[in-house]
């Protein structure tokens, strides 16, 4: 079994109102060194696969088909543990 991580973030140039709101509030709270916050999604996946490469291919496939919308989002996958 493998455990995969998928990170989904908004593409450059796509408005991120949640990130902006968090950023503004943190500055209000005194964290004036915070310049930018980008909000995204983190998804942990447990999956069966023949190899690490196959696991990565699967994670990419599920990202493209369902978990990310490539019109507005980028995704990055990694396999963190579970090598047989």
């Amino acid at each position: 079994m493998f455990i995969g991580n998928i990170y989904i973030t908004l593409k450059e140039g796509v408005l991120d109102p949640a990130g902006k709101a968090a950023n503004n509030k943190l500055r209000d709270l005194g964290f004036t060194n915070i310049n930018n916050i980008k909000m995204g999604k983190f998804i942990e996946v447990e999956l069966e696969a023949e190899s690490k490469e196959e696991a990565i291919r699967q994670l990419e496939a599920i990202s493209e088909q369902l978990l990310a919308n490539l019109v507005i989002e980028n995704y990055r996958v990694e396999v963190v543990e579970g090598d047989k």
Partner: peptide, 8 residues
């Protein structure tokens, strides 16, 4: 695509 409303 659609995004969250700008004012959240």
């Amino acid at each position: 695509a659609v995004l969250k409303n700008a004012n959240l």
